[in-house]
Design a protein around this nucleic acid. Structure first.
Lengths: 165, 165
DNA sequence: AGGTGATCCTTGCGTTCGCAACTACTCCGG
DNA sequence: CCGGAGTAGTTGCGAACGCAAGGATCACCT
């Protein structure tokens, strides 16, 4: 029972490998998809994520808090991303009539155009990469497994579809 | 054929969903695992990743370039992470005799102790989270799918096991 | 030998992010 | 009606990253 064996047993445990692979794939996808998304459409990662959530939401608007919960950003990070989107004219802030603390981020016409232009390109690149690695059925399997994992590590991601005001 | 239908068809395409889930899971895992790893062992994400690669490598050393290829960092990012690890006494730099441009990052005794202390805790947390969501067989399936994806988006991650000098 | 292009690593600069502190507002119990 | 606890959003500050540029070295070809 040498020490080195213990190290490898720990370091190559299947669960650690699974998480390591997930981190690697995430980084690899970001490296493959991010630059072209930014170069072709001026929408680096987080900005695109925010715009995508907005265009899919009723009224193309979302409370700052909900937007933060649905993206990978903290509340303060979201404030600054929205700041930049406002500077670019892609998003506007709107007051919430039922809660004067609150603020909506609302997609502008320019923002809608921008994201609707970017999505097809983005989707095509994603599809190209996924198709090289997995069959459609395997992609479904992967999504199902990831979804179950997501529900454990981030259960709040799908709520807040109710717009009360 | 309303426009809104097109938006949803695009925005909810299975491939886009798969990538979105992967990003969400990555962020959720980082949020769950990162803080305790840092609070309990003083090893925020990237530092841990570097130490883990080193402890698994022959001679507990790796060229800077190889280390950058195996982690999610750029070359410059890696330089600074290693700087911090050197400041903390967990890693040392060593010259490469066969290439005077090159530099090795070598684990110190303190670095080995630190990572070997952190790994069991980390692994236990990972296992706890994974077990809540997936069966062991499903984890294997997930890993197999992610590995195929990794080989497409980041094929250089597993090479460079040869230490020539 | 000598020179040209590539590679390894580091540094200057700008950008982005999260935490903690702050303001403004809401909600609730007395 | 009032006061305290809790929530929504923003900002100061420090930490971390990538890109592009730079110095040193290597590899190869003539």
């Amino acid at each position: 029972m040498a020490r080195a064996t213990d190290v490898n047993e720990l370091a190559e445990h299947p669960n650690l490998t699974a998480v390591g692979l997930l981190v690697e794939v995430h980084a690899g996808l970001a490296a493959s998809l991010g630059p072209s998304l930014e170069a072709d459409h001026g929408l680096p990662g987080q900005r695109f994520e925010v715009l995508l959530r907005l265009v899919r939401s009723p009224g193309e608007r979302l409370r700052m808090t909900d937007l933060a919960a649905q993206t990978t950003l903290s509340a303060s990070g979201l404030t600054r991303v929205v700041d930049r989107l406002v500077d670019e004219g892609l998003v506007e802030r709107a007051a919430c009539p039922s809660d004067r603390r609150g603020a909506y981020a609302v997609l502008t016409a320019a923002g809608r155009t921008r994201v609707l232009t970017a999505v097809p390109d983005h989707l095509e690149q994603i599809t190209s990469i996924l198709a090289q690695a997995l069959s459609p059925h395997e992609i479904e399997t992967l999504s199902a497994l990831l979804r179950r994992l997501r529900d454990v590590v981030h259960p709040d991601a799908t709520r807040h579809t109710d717009t009360d005001c």
